[in-house]
Simulated scan of single mutants.
Amino acid sequence: MSLVRDIIAQLLASQTVFKMVGGAADFSMIETRRSGTPAAYVMVADEASGENERATGRILQRLETDIAVVIVTDNLSDGRGGAAADDIEELKTFVRARLIGFEPSDAAEPVTHISGDLIKAHGGAVWFEDRYSVPTYLEEQP
Rank of each mutant, 00 (worst) to 15 (best):
E53I: 11
W127V: 02
Q61E: 07
E140R: 12
Y41E: 01
V21A: 01
E129K: 15
E140L: 11
Q15Y: 04
G57R: 05
A39V: 09
L63R: 10
N75C: 13
D87S: 12
A107W: 02
Q61M: 11
G23M: 08
T16P: 01
V111C: 04
E53G: 06
K92N: 07
A48V: 10
D6E: 08
T65P: 03
L11R: 03
L76G: 12
S2G: 10
M29A: 14
E139W: 10
E64K: 13
A25V: 12
I71F: 01
A107M: 06
P38C: 14
I100T: 15
E129V: 09
A107H: 04
T56W: 06
A97M: 11
F102L: 09
V17E: 10
F27N: 06
K92A: 12
A40I: 07
S28A: 15
V95L: 06
S28P: 03
D117I: 14
I67E: 00
P38N: 13
F102G: 03
G116M: 04
D86F: 08
K92M: 13
R54W: 03
D6H: 02
V70S: 03
R58A: 03
K92R: 15
S14L: 10
V72P: 00
F94D: 05
R131V: 06
V111T: 11
E31P: 04
V72W: 01
R96T: 08
A107G: 05
V69I: 13
P142N: 11
S14M: 07
R58Y: 01
L118Y: 07
D87G: 06
V134G: 00
R96A: 09
G82F: 06
M29Q: 15
D130I: 09
M1P: 02
V95C: 04
V134S: 03
S77D: 14
I30E: 01
D87I: 09
I114F: 02
G101V: 15
